[in-house]
């Protein structure tokens, strides 16, 4: 089942000279666009069946898909440590967290589907490399402390990014984010607590924690995306209130939050230029290696192929299972006469 979008919908064939190819007159188009802009500017939510500019729809699908893909690819680096978690308590926490990520991926695919694109289509685009996921997950988890660093820094950066999306102009996305942010509140805390235990633990544990923070700090700062003057999608997304704050603004917010937390942890952030700027009321920090960012984004990170490879493999090896369930459902439906309306007692409100 694949949903239809306006270009392939039945109205596409109806275009006449008076229409602009989307089945409406130019006047009506302008009127709609103006009404849409006004509604968004007034902070009204856009819902799935409302008229919306095609670019707005495409932008949203792109962002929600990337977000959903990040959740499910993001399961991998952490799942890498489930079978080696050093205590049963940590093991339960980690399993619950990785499970949440699958759940969050599902919420986001579900939100993206309201815009007329199916999950299967989106997964195909992930598997074929046509859609991206957050580059942060192309870094490996080499020690147990990496699980903590991901929770504290990566989830911390993600939350800084995500909280404003709870007020995104597109209703289903905003609602999914509210649920996700609520559920994720424990993710960052468990990471912080994990690192705290290591930092205050043996000398070896402390070194393990410091090493993880050294490796994850800069990639976490890159999670906010390129600097504002190089960001391809930022300005329009801000105008449409898909985004509420610029990349650099959010990055600064994250650094300001992380610095005192690192102090509390007794760990050092790997940036000699990091210092409080009284005048700005913010921390100054060193230059980010954007060459590395673009390189990882292009597919040259340590784990790009491995991550997509595992995802593709799980999907392909699961095909017979999905087929079996579909075939069974088909047989059952063929055997059962349709229920007369109103017979289902439970469904009465």
């Amino acid at each position: 089942m694949v949903a239809v979008t306006p270009e392939t919908g039945p109205d596409a064939a109806l275009g006449t000279d008076e229409t602009d190819g989307t089945g409406m007159t130019a006047d009506l188009g302008a009127q709609l666009a103006a009404a849409f802009d006004a509604a968004v500017a007034a902070d009204e939510r856009v819902e799935p069946r409302d008229w919306m500019p095609e670019q707005y729809r495409a932008s949203l699908v792109r962002q929600m898909a990337q977000h959903a893909h990040s959740e499910i690819i993001g399961m991998q680096p952490e799942a890498n440590w489930i079978t080696r978690a050093p205590s049963l308590r940590r093991k339960a926490i980690l399993m619950a967290k990785v499970q949440d990520e699958a759940g969050h991926g599902l919420y986001l695919y579900s939100a993206a589907e309201t815009l007329g694109t199916s999950r299967d289509e989106l997964l195909d685009k992930l598997h074929s490399g046509k859609q991206k996921y957050s580059s942060i997950f192309n870094y490996p988890t080499l020690t147990w402390a990496d699980v903590g660093a991901i929770g504290w820094l990566v989830d911390g950066a993600a939350i800084t990014n995500q909280v404003p999306i709870c007020r995104c102009s597109y209703g289903p996305y905003a609602r999914a984010m509210v649920r996700i942010c609520k559920e994720e509140s424990f993710h960052q805390r468990q990471g912080f607590e994990l690192l705290m235990a290591l930092s205050k633990g043996t000398e070896e544990q402390h070194a393990m924690a410091q090493d993880a923070v050294d490796r994850w700090w800069w990639p976490s700062l890159m999670m906010f995306g390129p600097p504002d003057d190089e960001s391809a999608h930022s300005a329009q997304s801000m105008a449409w209130r898909i985004k509420r704050h610029s990349n650099d603004e959010l990055r600064q917010r994250f650094v300001d939050i992380a610095v005192p937390q690192a102090e509390a942890l007794g760990l050092t952030l790997p940036d000699p230029d990091l210092k409080w700027n009284e005048e700005r009321g913010h921390h100054d920090f060193g230059a980010i290696d954007w060459a590395e960012f673009w390189d990882v984004l292009k597919g040259n990170g340590p784990c790009n192929e491995q991550r997509i490879g595992q995802r593709r493999k799980a999907h392909e090896e699961g095909a017979w299972v999905r087929d079996a369930a579909a075939a069974y459902a088909h047989k059952q439906a063929a055997q059962q006469p349709a229920k007369p309306a109103g017979q289902n007692e439970e469904a009465r409100v």
Binding site: M1, M52, E113
Partner: peptide, 13 residues
């Protein structure tokens, strides 16, 4: 417009 064209943005065709 959605009243005008209910088929424009549905998800489930």
């Amino acid at each position: 417009p959605s009243a005008d064209k209910p088929y424009r943005h549905p998800t489930f065709y």
